[in-house]
């Protein structure tokens, strides 16, 4: 009986391994901010024990809304996402996708019609465990 219980626990541990982390290879997206209009921006900062830095900038690129994370760096974690949110939590948000990398300049397309005065917070958010890694209030 003890062997069976040990076997079950072993399988359980093997099935509950760490999830895939965000890529760490530095990236440099081709988005050129000099060709777009800056609408809002803010400095990114980490939350609790996580380190996040850089500048979050919201652009109008000839009718297309774009978020640029410049000079960006972040602690790593599982299932990190980029949100535009109405608060520093996930009360109401627009998911811009998975964080492309923990370092480097990266851009994210914002769905048309998103009200940037309402969704003015940029969040680096661990969706899997519902944890805030970093935030920026854009003005």
């Amino acid at each position: 009986m003890k062997k069976i219980i040990f076997g079950v626990l072993t399988v359980l541990v093997l099935c509950c391994g760490p999830e895939d982390a965000t890529p760490t290879t530095p990236i440099n997206d081709t988005f050129d901010p000099t060709m777009a209009t800056l609408l809002r921006q803010g400095n990114l900062m980490g939350s609790s024990s996580y380190t996040v830095g850089g500048v979050a900038q919201l652009y109008d690129d000839t009718g297309k809304l774009v978020l640029l994370l410049d000079n960006f760096s972040s602690s790593n974690g599982p299932d990190l996402r980029v949100y535009l949110s109405t608060t520093t939590g996930n009360t109401s948000f627009v998911n811009l996708g998975k964080l492309k990398s923990t370092t480097g300049k990266q851009s994210y397309e914002i769905p048309a019609g998103t009200d940037l005065t309402e969704f003015k917070f940029v969040l680096i958010w661990c969706q899997q465990f519902s944890v805030l890694f970093g935030k920026s209030e854009t003005n």
């Binding site: 009360t91 627009v94 811009l96």
Partner: peptide, 13 residues
């Protein structure tokens, strides 16, 4: 339980 509602790119607590 607290959770996250997901509807395409939109979501909320």
């Amino acid at each position: 339980k607290d959770g996250t509602y997901l509807n395409g790119t939109q979501g909320g607590s």
